[in-house]
Design a protein around this nucleic acid. Structure first.
Lengths: 188, 188, 188, 188
DNA sequence: CATGAATGAGAATTCATTCAT
DNA sequence: GATGAATGAATTCTCATTCAT
């Protein structure tokens, strides 16, 4: 019966946070995020209990968005290599077309404000990708290595690749291919 | 602000910074670092112009120390795989026996206070390792990929491996081997 | 802001305020009082123009309730000492069985938000007690002292006594008697 | 060897706090107190860890000052009544000539920021007065009542008296005498 | 009239850096 | 040079009050 909490504002804050944190790190002032979102500094706290809360929600949203993007248009029929390549391509595409989100995610990933629960939930959003990776490993040379470890490795390779694509856009496609080659050498 | 009188104090501050930043991140107060170093907060600024300066010096020192450690006892005679394995083992050994330094380095690596110049200089300390890597790649499947990229990849694989070794010390050796296997699959 | 529609809600807010202010002091947030009353924070301001208004109304209500309680069952026939003792007993009984109200009153008594008008009105609710006190004084040693002063003195003695009764419940009765003895020595 | 912490500044903050709290209550902003003391808001916190710390130190200082004032020029030779009367006079004199300190003390006395330890220490500063009171009670009608209770009673009577002296300065002396008469009736 | 989101002026602290001693 | 007090901008979060729904 009262003014409803606005999803639009909630999202505005979140996306203002992306922009602000991308350039200033997690130390960015909540007041600045609020202003950037076109909202009063007080209002920010009706949508997020705490700055840490905002950070955690943002972290999960971005991780989820990334995972969803990576699986978009997943070729259920294809062979393993094609499937992994598809995920790889989607992933890099998302990261390189959303550099701010990607940079923010990097900041959040190392922030002490992100709880273990959030990290766990983030890992869960990658479950489908993990499953794919598992099937790739089945007959490969790294068979027997903990899936968790392999997933982390895949993440690391992807991150490094993305770094180079963003740093040297002229050769982005070449880097993407190199990265996949490295990944495939590991998993297959 | 000029030449530090006492190298000992300079180093004391640096190693206090390692301890403090490892646990508190780069947001750690300079006053705390100073106290931990047994130095007055004012004195810290006679050894380092600025907090960012301290951070950058620390970054370079740690990166250098890491590179030196990785090359310690390098077997000039061995074949490529043995040489790389040696470096790998030294690297992981340094990281796992100096977890605070390693954690601090992780914090610094993503800090906005570290200049591009520092990042470049850090990369230069890895020149010898890069050269080794280059020779590995010569006849490998990744031949033709920019060395810079491969170095970053190696870094990423090493970091991931170290993470798992520290997180799960019971299986540290197994993780170290898995990591090297992955690396070797990439480079050779 | 106008006439309260529902007296029930008005009272609910007031008694929620008692509970909340007893434990948090007059700094208690209006939003908290509202929630405790089962009312929206906005609604609180249709019943009370202002937080200060709420505080003042509460102050007067509690003072009135205290005075009424003190006079309950007043023995119109008894001699002066019995009458004063009756009031004394009722007063202490109210205070010790309504410790939250009493504590709230203590907070309000020293609050800058309570206007002089409210203090005056509060004093007026004690008129009957004042009259009794006046008769006690008529032949006593303090005869001639301003009634206002004597009333304040009686208040002070009562308050001190109640403090000790609440702080040391095992000896509550003894303290009540000591307090009355002190009071009687003054007035008679 | 560095700039010494200045007792003058410490005291300036304390006495600025007296002025500010007297008129605004314990809710007075630390920034205001600092400005009033001619000190930066940051500096306030080099002299007091916390606002609560400032409040507690102030409380103890004022209580001590009051007790010292009350005992100033104490007539060791006199009879009990004269001694008590002396203390009474000194006490009222201090309170009425330092109305801001007195008002601040009233605010502090009911503040939740004052720890039990501080209250205890404050009580200890009244030890000499308590001893005098004890001797008064020895042969009086209230003999046997806990000294603590009697001390609180004396405090209450004094406070009430001071209130009236300040509120109605024209009759201050008369009120002072009335107050003492009441006190003496209780204790003797 | 009820609701609760919106507002924005504070509030207490913290901290890199400067500077008097 | 060394010390640590001084500074004041900046930070997160709170809260009385207003107003759209």
């Amino acid at each position: 019966m009262a003014r409803p909490r606005s999803a639009a504002k909630h999202d505005a804050v979140l996306s203002a946070a992306v922009r602000t944190i991308a350039s200033q790190g997690t130390g960015a002032a909540t007041a600045l995020i609020a202003k950037e979102a076109g909202v009063s500094n007080g209002s920010l706290f009706t949508y997020f209990d705490t700055k840490a809360d905002l950070l955690n929600q943002l972290y999960i949203q971005l991780k989820t968005e990334m995972a969803v993007a990576a699986l978009d248009g997943f070729p259920a029929q294809g062979d393993l290599r094609d499937q992994l390549l598809h995920v790889w391509g989607q992933w890099l595409h998302w990261a390189t077309t959303s550099p701010e989100k990607r940079r923010t995610l990097a900041h959040l990933d190392v922030s002490d404000d992100i709880t273990v629960a959030s990290h766990q939930q983030a890992r869960r959003t990658m479950a489908d990708i993990a499953r794919l990776l598992e099937r790739c490993l089945e007959h490969g040379q790294m068979h027997g290595t903990p899936l968790e470890f392999m997933l982390a490795l895949m993440n690391a390779v992807a991150d490094t690749t993305i770094d180079f694509m963003l740093r040297d856009p002229a050769n982005a496609q070449k880097h993407a291919q190199s990265g996949f080659k490295a990944l495939w050498h590991i998993v297959a």
